[in-house]
Design a protein around this nucleic acid. Structure first.
Lengths: 344, 344
DNA sequence: TTGCCTTGATTAAGCGCTTAATCAACATCC
DNA sequence: GGATGTTGATTAAGCGCTTAATCAAGGCAA
């Protein structure tokens, strides 16, 4: 592994000069610069990023902590976040907590402040106090907007509105008998989606029975189980809303297995608009959330917090809200069989 | 940020001693050790991993390079790989190349040898020469076994056998009119699966028309398009085999959209057994590949290459083969309508 | 010619940690 | 009672890079 000084020798200058041409600082004559550049690729030199990090007091990496990269939502976010980080020359360290608080804290303890300059957190189930006491900046991603700020810099999405949009879509189609499958994300992650939905129902004067709500794990299987329970207990349902796409897809499977046709016999919708939503059959109606924008905002905010980006970019806010979710009607929703579609 | 020396002061010893207790090396009396330990958590000290990396000449991170973490197969591999790395105290750096060779090379150049000690590569479409010249060890993951070794340490899976198993399953059910959708992974990544399949067909004496092969992108959409083309052009098909689960799922969608019932009218199968395969409806018959094992082997091999694990663990081999793929019959395959099931 | 500014490079200290070499103090052995 | 070991700690060099401070050498004005 060639070092900076070897390059310096080869070019007949001092290490400081090489460093200067590398970083475009200080004064270097064009002639010298060229000699250094030549030496660099003659020797195939690459800077040692650890040494640089040590000297600069900060490394080139950010971290993203998710509960499990196997949950299809995270990769989409991770991809965008990584791209954003790379655009600024940072690498992205991936951390799977497997929904284990201890693991998460271990990561936070080990990474924070040395390996990674800052961390993006997508785990609802973390102790906020721990995050606040992190030794390096933390940005909480995909916070649910109407909740009060957790006292941690965060990127929020208006999930309350998302819930409302979902309800309005179903109501507009003429559904009245609607079941709900809500993800049991720790920290009540899905409560605002639920409130948005039920509030919109109430506003439309539609009666709402609490036994029509099933709380399940935020997975396809969870949605499957919840959907099955709901459909068996309440055959009159004409639509089911899930607070997330994954369980919504599970609901579709459950309905199919029970011999129901979607959307003829049952309308199903979710929230998020993950890739799978448009790839499922029937394609899932959902409320799209600006994942990519959230990821970019998150990286940007984190960068200002670690002092790499001028603060002015966002002002002093600790909570950045993305643009609004938008309804994406697809094939999984339609007017209930015996009802007329109310135009909105 | 407290440093090692501060801890040393606090405990009334020299930095060397603190380092010794931290790493359980050298001789330290129990009494001193305790004093240091107390100082450490009194001050909330955490080692600076960059400094450590610099001093030791090697950092605690490995890297995983995939073409896009949004492809559902990769997360499953990534999860296992990360877990394996963590089990040995290493962090995992995630790199998305977006199928761009230049990006991949940029990563390789920047990471290799400084930030990451070694890299796991899952990209078929990389110049092997570049990999060979990497300044740090590289392990190529999920190589296709029957191919000759690429001259790079690699983990191979017997995809030829996987193709055979798929064919045998379909043949055993009584299918004769079978279409094939093959992923166009660069570097002919799917050719051995295809060969395994066609060889098995030939061995069973089943005629095979080359126009029954559609080459498509390795995605749901690709499978959808390929399936549609195949089914429209050859309505007599009773089964379609895709070289990967993702396109297989696309094929199912295409069939459904054309009004075919699965498996009554058409059997579909894939290879890999990703999570989605068992979560799709109908559940996808497939040939399961030992992803987790491959990931663990890969990390382990990489660790021996970077010298962190005794070489003896694997001997001098440069190509490690996982245990064999296994058939996972599910709901998407059945005997063709007008045929009797041949018992095997 | 003297003094001052600019340019282009060097010097040297330091980032936080590791580790081989060294040392002091004490116990052991014949 | 000196030679020999052991134990438990210290010293000091060094990892590869950054950067403020310093310096030599011209150029230019008065």
């Amino acid at each position: 592994m060639t070092t900076l000084s070897e390059v310096a020798n080869h070019a007949g200058v001092t290490p400081a000069t090489v460093s200067n041409v590398l970083r475009n600082r200080g004064r270097v004559s064009n002639e010298t610069r060229q000699r250094v550049l030549d030496a660099i690729d003659a020797l195939g030199y690459r800077p040692n990023l650890n040494a640089r990090a040590l000297a600069e007091g900060r490394g080139p990496t950010l971290a993203l902590m998710v509960s499990s990269i196997a949950n299809p939502f995270y990769p989409e976010f991770a991809l965008a976040a990584e791209r954003a980080a790379r655009a600024h020359g940072s690498f992205m360290l991936l951390c799977n907590t497997n929904d284990d608080t201890a693991t998460a804290h271990a990561y936070l303890n080990q990474l924070a402040g040395s390996l990674s300059q800052g961390v993006l957190v997508m785990n609802g189930n973390l102790d906020f106090d721990v995050l606040r006491q992190s030794r390096c900046p933390v940005v909480l991603c995909m916070w649910e907007k109407p909740h009060e700020s957790p006292g941690i810099p965060c990127i929020a999405v208006d999930f309350y509105l998302a819930g409302q949009l979902a309800a309005q879509h179903l109501l507009a189609l003429g559904h009245q008998a609607i079941g709900i499958v809500v993800g049991n994300g720790k920290g009540g992650i899905h409560t605002s989606r639920l409130r948005g939905f039920t509030d919109a129902m109430a506003a439309a004067g539609v009666e709402f029975a609490p036994e029509l709500i099933e709380t399940v794990p935020d997975t396809v299987q969870g949605g499957y189980d919840g959907g099955q329970t709901l459909l068996q207990r309440h055959p009159q349902l004409t639509a089911i809303f899930a607070t997330n796409d994954l369980p919504a897809i599970g609901v579709m499977h459950a309905a199919t297995d029970l011999g129901l046709r979607i959307p003829a016999d049952l309308s199903v919708m979710g929230i998020t608009d993950i890739q799978m939503a448009q790839e499922s059959r029937p394609a899932l109606s959902t409320v799209a959330v600006p994942t990519q924008e959230a990821a970019e905002l998150a990286v940007s905010l984190l960068r200002t917090l670690v002092g790499q980006e001028p603060r002015a970019a966002h002002g002093p806010h600790q909570m950045l809200v993305t643009s609004e979710p938008v309804l994406v009607p697809r094939a999984s929703t339609a007017a209930p069989r015996a009802a007329s579609t109310r135009s909105d």
